[in-house]
Design a protein around this nucleic acid. Structure first.
Lengths: 197, 197
DNA sequence: TTGACAAGTGACCTCCCGTTCACTATAGTA
DNA sequence: TACTATAGTGAACGGGAGGTCACTTGTCAA
């Protein structure tokens, strides 16, 4: 037996929690989606809440690995055009990767109920993004690509409209292509405003 | 008897749905918060879903009344400073009014499950805001207060960072003051960038 | 005064939830 | 081969969910 069921349960939980929320998810459906009977789940997690906590642990660890350490940060673009390329590359991943989408949805749905979800939501949706782009813009200012200004303010002004459109994709996936187009247009407009010609 | 119970039920539903979500709310608690026993609620609404639909009706109507008609739109500011004043006034209302906060939370929690919530969420969080400020910026360009540019793009670039901080206030109310300060700083930075001196 | 009706009660129904437990089948080890 | 730990089963349990219903109470109109 044994086929990494513990991880499969977490994956199924992420899927169901992101669609129906924690309260709207029941163990019967969750286990059925794995070809298990519900009592089987309790061989791996002692309760529904334990699954939830394990999922949060996993999300926290994942975020730390990918965005916590400086070596995983994207390189500073060396042209204005490269900033848009980098942006679109990041957006395309984040908007099409099912697991990332589901992570955002779960954090959105549970942010008012669970302290850890709340903190992760703020990181994912606000502080994390601005921190990454603060470095990028500071670097681009040093290279003379972008007008000298407060890099944190520019990062905030750049990432939040993009973030809003990413949330739109989560909410109305059929608008994804449109949203990506808008993001690119916004990126170019931003460059036209702050870039050094 | 009769004391507007139907409306009080909706108010209580808004409160509970915004805290625990639709699935996480039960009729027993809801009626108890009104000093009723749960069967009493069924004298006014035939089911939990009927309450939910009535709440959405109310939210839709409210939005239409306040933001749907042109006469309720804010006047075009006649100075750059007045744009910040108008912005801060709107932000202060939206961030401190309990009913508006709860409305945003409900839409956030139910946007993936309910079509009407999804549409309202996009209006509240994205299109509504940008439409209002598109008119404002177009007007300010006509008055020569703001550099000629695509007013819709400026509206998007202006409102989305503010919207992100409003969501932060909903998520972590203890950061409200900080967020308001950041919004004001952002507004002034925006003016410094796009305003005509 | 009486009758009709709207509002509210409490007991009850059915269903499904999370959880437990005795049991079985399997794989690896001594 | 026998032992043990692990993974999975299926029946059962207690509780709480949404919803129904017969009944009482208060209001108002005829």
């Amino acid at each position: 037996m044994a086929n990494g069921t513990k991880e499969r349960i977490l994956a199924a939980a992420l899927e169901m929690f992101s669609q129906n929320g924690y309260a709207g998810t029941n163990i019967r459906e969750l286990s059925a989606s794995l070809g298990l009977v519900k009592s089987g789940v309790y061989k791996h997690y002692e309760s529904k809440e334990a699954i939830w906590n394990a999922l949060l642990d996993q999300m926290t660890a994942y975020y730390g690995e990918h965005f916590g350490s400086p070596e995983h940060l994207p390189p500073v673009p060396d042209s204005l055009e490269a900033l848009t390329r980098l942006t679109m590359q990041m957006v395309n991943i984040t908007v099409h990767d099912e697991k990332i989408i589901m992570t955002r949805k779960v954090l959105t749905l549970e942010q008012y109920r669970d302290v850890r979800a709340r903190e992760l939501a703020t990181k994912h949706f606000l502080t994390g993004l601005t921190e990454i782009f603060t470095r990028i813009f500071a670097g681009m200012m040093d290279k003379g690509l972008i007008r000298r200004d407060d890099p944190a303010m520019l990062a905030f002004a750049y990432t939040m409209p993009i973030s809003a459109l990413i949330h739109l994709c989560d909410r109305e996936p059929e608008k994804t292509e449109d949203a990506i187009g808008q993001i690119e247009a916004f990126s170019r407009h931003f460059i036209a405003t702050y870039g050094v010609k």
